[in-house]
Amino acid sequence: MAMTDLLHAEDIKKAVGPYTAVDSFDHKKFFQMVGLKKKSPEDVKKVFHILDKDQSDFIEEEELGFILKGFSPDARDLSVKETKTLLAAGDKDGDGKIGADEFSTLVAES
């Protein structure tokens, strides 16, 4: 399944665009702009599984660094600071990774 099966390509392009500068990523604004906040819980979990590149049922810190590329292959990687900020926002149980339910909560809080 591709991200564009769940989200509009134009929304993805508009959402990724503002985050070309290092340390500019704001997950709350991004999830709203990309249209993820309006999606059903089932669709949010499908997006989670696309972002979970190693299919471990978790998005680990390394995978979080590539989250923008999960939406658009030509997007940049997150900086270490942005990755740690996103992990801190999403990792509710403190295990160092984000599960599907934590991801859904992170999107809902946006």
Rank of each mutant, 00 (worst) to 15 (best):
residue 92 K to W: 00
residue 68 L to N: 09
residue 90 G to W: 00
residue 101 D to A: 12
residue 7 L to R: 05
residue 30 F to P: 03
residue 100 A to V: 10
residue 84 K to M: 14
residue 24 S to C: 03
residue 100 A to C: 10
residue 9 A to L: 09
residue 35 G to Q: 07
residue 76 R to G: 07
residue 81 K to C: 02
residue 34 V to R: 09
residue 89 A to T: 02
residue 70 G to D: 07
residue 14 K to C: 07
residue 103 F to M: 13
residue 4 T to R: 06
residue 95 D to V: 10
residue 109 E to A: 14
residue 98 I to K: 13
residue 6 L to M: 02
residue 21 A to R: 12
residue 72 S to L: 12
residue 109 E to Y: 00
residue 52 D to A: 13
residue 25 F to V: 08
residue 46 K to L: 12
residue 74 D to R: 09
residue 12 I to P: 13
residue 80 V to H: 15
residue 73 P to Y: 14
residue 96 G to D: 12
residue 106 L to W: 05
residue 15 A to S: 09
residue 54 D to W: 14
residue 95 D to E: 15
residue 71 F to G: 09
residue 27 H to K: 04
residue 80 V to Q: 15
residue 24 S to R: 03
residue 24 S to M: 02
residue 35 G to N: 09
residue 4 T to V: 08
residue 73 P to N: 08
residue 89 A to D: 10
residue 77 D to P: 00
residue 69 K to V: 07
residue 6 L to D: 03
residue 57 D to M: 08
residue 56 S to F: 10
residue 28 K to R: 15
residue 94 G to E: 10
residue 56 S to K: 08
residue 89 A to L: 08
residue 3 M to Y: 08
residue 10 E to I: 10
residue 26 D to E: 04
residue 104 S to L: 15
residue 56 S to I: 05
residue 3 M to W: 02
residue 59 I to P: 02
residue 54 D to C: 03
residue 2 A to G: 15
residue 67 I to G: 09
residue 34 V to I: 09
residue 16 V to W: 06
residue 13 K to Q: 12
residue 13 K to G: 00
residue 67 I to S: 07
residue 29 K to T: 06
residue 79 S to E: 10
residue 45 K to C: 02
residue 65 G to R: 14
residue 79 S to A: 07
residue 97 K to E: 12
residue 65 G to N: 10
residue 43 D to N: 13
residue 71 F to E: 04
residue 45 K to P: 02
residue 11 D to V: 00
residue 26 D to Y: 00
residue 17 G to M: 02
residue 81 K to N: 10
residue 84 K to Y: 07
residue 58 F to P: 03
residue 11 D to M: 00
residue 7 L to F: 05
residue 83 T to G: 13
residue 19 Y to T: 04
residue 88 A to R: 11
residue 93 D to K: 07
residue 71 F to H: 12
residue 80 V to N: 15
residue 47 V to N: 03
residue 110 S to K: 06
